[in-house]
Amino acid sequence: MSVSERLLSPYHDGTSAVHRSDAAIKLALTLAYVLAVNATPVRAWPIHLGYAVLGTAVIALARLPLERVLRRALLAAPFVLMAVLGAPFVREGRPILTLPLLDGRLVLTDVGLSRLANVAVKSWLSLCAVVTLTLTTPFLEIVRASQRLGLPTVLSATILLMYRYLFVLADEAQRLMRARDARTGEAPAGSRGASLFWRATITGRLIGTLFLRTVERGERIYQAMLARGYDGAIRSLTAEPVGWRAISGSIALALLLVVLTLFANLHW
């Protein structure tokens, strides 16, 4: 398994009920879960606790190593952090703490803190749900499921092409970088003559080369498609319909989520 393979294929093989259930159901439920989590106000914290228990139960049912789920969810943490950082310092609310920075203009307020908790809890729960989906469902099945759920074929075909060539591209990039590293030596005197600017230039050219090769490859792929009768229409075999048992099961779960969300919004 190449490096690109390990990075791009999170799927964790298993035989659990979660692994075996229909990908379209899993995808729809994951979306419902994310929606429910984000529609629930943060002050309804017991409900969020319930969401967390529900999520953990699915992870346990799928026999996924919890550590693996958390680690993959952590990959998205920097993006969440960017969104979260400014949240505690808002003008409204009761000031709690004034930081000795920027002439005391950085004031932590209770409203700000609750917003921080809001974004942190919701993003974390949503991320874990999506990671659980990708760990228990091969990527191809997720895309096919989204197609069955009504994603336009142009989009799913684009995603599939992208996925196919990510591997090819990643390996190509790796070869280019190896070729660079193989000629990145040090003079016997030990001085590293290359300046940061110079090295950045090399990296820039590397990326440029990769881009040009990609464009050329795109052209060749298009020719290969034309050669087999491609005329702009994307055709695929009819997908099998979603089974009714799976549908009724997921409707029940989705209803539970709706009830939880409604309860949270009305009660708190």
Partner: peptide, 8 residues
């Protein structure tokens, strides 16, 4: 790799 552009 140019000819095999599909996922499977």
């Amino acid at each position: 790799d140019d000819q095999l552009f599909s996922p499977t």
